[in-house]
Design a protein around this nucleic acid. Structure first.
Lengths: 336, 336
DNA sequence: ACAGCTGATTAAAACGTTTTCGATTTTTGC
DNA sequence: GCAAAAATCGAAAACGTTTTAATCAGCTGT
C-alpha cells in the first residue's frame, strides 16, 4: 500500500507538498504539481478515505436505514427504485452509500452506528417511525432525511397520496365514467389520504360518491380485491369503473372478473395504483398511478446533501413528489 | 464527540488503559475495566470505526458491486433478495455493507474504489464479467466473491441452471405428462445449461424430446412467450405441458392461451422459472422453479468472510446453490 | 535483604491524511 | 539596488485509535 510519504520520498519533497499537489493547491507551482501527480500516478497511488475522513471530519458517505420488520413483498420493488436513484444522485456528488443496520453482535443504536461509521448524514426508509431508535436518530442533530414520514425536525420526502386518486378519478371521468368504485386499503394514514383524494376528484368532476361503491380491501392482497370486485359487479346498480387498492391487488380483481366471464376493459374498467413492473408487463397494460419512486430517492439525496454541505441555511422542509397517470388498456372510453 | 482521551482524563488513567478496558483485555484488573467502562457509558462514548480501521488495517466492511448496464427489470427482485440475505449474514458477523460504485466525479476503477474505502473484501454481482475493471478487481488479490460467474482465482456462488429444468421435467412427468414443450431463452450460457437440464430430465424419465416442442423465446418477454405458446397449441400433435422461459414470460403465455379459450391448467399445463413474487401472488399459483437467491447471498457472505478471516487456508471454490420446485396450480395431474 | 517474578499500568509510535503557520526564495516596484 | 510583497515550500500537529515494549510496585522464596 503506497502512501503519500512514499511519493514524497521519491519526489524529494515533503508530504505536505504532495498532499497539496494531489489537490491542485494553488500555493504550489505548476511544475511541482505536475511532477508529483506524475509520480503518484506511476506508483499507483490510491488515497485512503478513512485517514482523510479522520482529519477532515467528513466521510463523504451517507448511511441508509431500511427498517421494515414486516419485509413486505411489494416493498422490494419500491425500495429498490428508491435505493437506486438515491445512490446515483449521491454518487454524482461524490458520496457513497452504506447500509446502517443493527448487528446482533453489538448493541449500538442506529444513531451510535451512524456516529461509529462517521456518516455525514442518514436517509431513513421505515415502516415504523415510532421506533425509539429512529426518533433518537432524527433528534440527534445528525443530518437526516426521512421518506414517507414527517418529523418536524428533519426534511421529509413524501409521495403524494392525495393527488394520485384525484387524478385517476379525473382521468376515468374524462373517459366518460360516472359510477366509479374504490376498493381502498386498510384504515391507515395512506388510506385516509387516498380516500380524501378520491372524494376531491369526484367533486371536481361533479360526480357523487355512492357509498356502496366504497369497499375496504387490503394492500397487496389480490384475493381481498377479487372478492370486493365480485361484490361490486353483483350489485344491481353497478359501477363502470373500479379503482383498486394497488396493482398487485388489482391482479386479483382481473382474475376474479375474468373467471366470472367479464372482459376487461369491455365489461368493466379497472384502475390500479403504484405502477409496479407487472402493471407494464401484463396485458392489458394497467391504467394506474405510477409512483415516482426514483424521484423520491433523488430528492432524498439532494436534500440530505444540501443539508450536510450548507448547515447554516438549513430549515427542515417537506417535499412532495408527484406521480403520473399511466393510461393503460384496462379502462374503456365509454364516451364513444 | 467524546473520545478515548476524554475518558482517560476523567478516569485519571492513560488512553492505553482505556482502550484495553473497552476491549476487556485480561491484562487489566477487573476493577479498572469496570470503572472505565462505567465512565465510558456515562459519557456516551461511541468508538470511531475509521480510526480503528486505520490502525488495524481492517475495516469490517465489505463492498458490493452491482453492475448491470441494462438494469433489467426482473433483476431488481433477484438482486434485492441477494442483497438482503447477504446483508443479514454479513452483519451477524460484524461486517457492514457499502456500495462500491463508480462516481462520474472521480475516475477511479472499482479496485481503486475498494482500496480507497478500505474494503476488507468485495462481492460482485454483474451482468458483464468481461468488464476490464471487474477483471482487474478479481485479480487484485483483494478477497472477492462473484455471483453467477466463475473466475478461477476467486470463489464463485452459482445458481444451478441445469438442475432446475431437470427437476421440473421430473415433476411434471410424475404428473403424467409425456409431451413436454420448452420455450427457452435466447442463446446464452444460461439457456445452454437449462436446455442441458431439460434433456437430462427427459432422458431420466424415459421421454423423447420432440424438436417441434423446442421454441426460442426471450427472457422476461411475455409477448414472445405468448406467441410461442399459441404456436405450440396450434400443432396437430400438441404438448400437454409447456415449460416457459421464466415467470414473467409465462404471464404472456397465460394471457394468450386464456384469450384463445384455453383454461390453465385444465387444457394446458404451464411451468415457469425463477419463483418471483408474482408466481406466488397470481391465481392460479405458478408451478415454477424457485431460485434460492437468499441462499446465494448468504453463501456469498459466508465465503467472503472466511476468505477474509482465514487467508492462509484459502482456495478458490465454486458453490452451487440449488432451488426447489414450487408445486403450483398451473400444472394438472393427468394420471387421474 | 536481594534477585527474580507477577500483575498492573503507561509512554510512545504508528495508521495515512490535511492544514496551519512559519521559513525561504523569488519577484516586484521604485 | 533594496525593501516589500508575492510565491513556494516544509515542519509539525492533529484526527481517534491500537499495540508494543517499557516501567513500576508489590511479592516470592531463599
Amino acid at each position: 500500500m503506497i502512501k503519500i510519504k512514499d511519493i514524497a520520498i521519491k519526489c524529494n519533497t515533503s508530504i505536505a507538498t504532495v498532499s497539496k499537489a494531489l489537490h491542485n493547491s494553488d500555493e504550489l507551482s505548476k511544475e511541482t504539481i505536475a511532477r508529483v501527480q506524475k509520480v503518484a500516478q506511476e506508483m499507483g497511488y490510491v488515497p485512503n478515505a478513512y485517514a482523510r475522513a479522520l482529519k477532515m471530519k467528513r466521510s463523504f458517505s451517507i448511511g441508509i436505514i431500511f427498517y421494515d420488520p414486516t419485509a413486505g413483498g411489494l416493498k422490494h420493488e419500491y425500495f429498490s427504485a428508491i435505493l437506486d436513484s438515491l445512490k446515483v444522485e449521491a454518487e454524482s456528488k461524490g458520496y457513497n452509500i452504506t447500509f446502517l443496520s443493527k448487528s446482533p453482535a453489538s448493541s449500538m443504536t442506529y444513531y451510535q452506528i451512524a456516529k461509529y461509521r462517521n456518516m455525514d448524514g442518514v436517509i431513513v426508509v421505515s415502516e415504523d417511525f415510532s421506533n425509539p431508535e429512529i426518533i433518537e436518530l432524527v433528534n440527534s442533530g445528525l443530518p437526516v432525511v426521512t421518506i414517507d414520514y414527517i418529523f418536524n425536525s428533519a426534511t421529509a420526502i413524501m409521495s403524494d397520496n392525495t393527488e394520485g386518486p384525484e387524478r385517476l378519478v379525473n382521468y376515468v371521468a374524462s373517459l366518460g365514467h360516472k359510477n366509479i368504485a374504490f376498493i381502498h386499503g386498510e384504515n391507515t394514514e395512506v388510506t385516509k389520504k387516498r380516500l380524501a383524494g378520491f372524494y376531491k376528484g369526484m367533486q371536481e368532476c361533479g360526480l357523487t360518491v355512492n357509498n356502496d361503491f366504497l369497499i375496504e380491501g387490503r394492500f397487496h392482497d389480490p384475493r381481498a380485491c377479487g372478492r370486493a370486485a365480485k361484490q361490486l359487479v353483483s350489485l344491481s346498480d353497478r359501477p363502470t369503473c373500479i379503482l383498486c387498492t394497488d396493482d398487485i391487488a388489482m391482479l386479483g380483481a382481473i382474475t376474479a372478473l375474468n373467471q366470472s366471464g367479464y372482459d376487461i376493459p369491455k365489461d368493466m374498467s379497472l384502475v390500479g395504483y403504484d405502477g409496479v413492473e407487472i402493471s407494464r408487463i401484463f396485458r392489458p397494460v394497467f391504467t394506474t398511478y405510477v409512483q415516482n419512486s426514483s424521484e423520491l430517492g433523488k430528492q432524498a439525496s439532494i436534500n440530505l446533501i444540501s443539508r450536510i454541505e450548507e448547515p447554516n441555511t438549513f430549515i427542515p422542509r417537506t417535499v412532495y413528489v408527484q406521480g403520473r397517470v399511466q393510461e393503460g388498456n384496462t379502462t374503456r372510453n365509454i364516451n364513444k
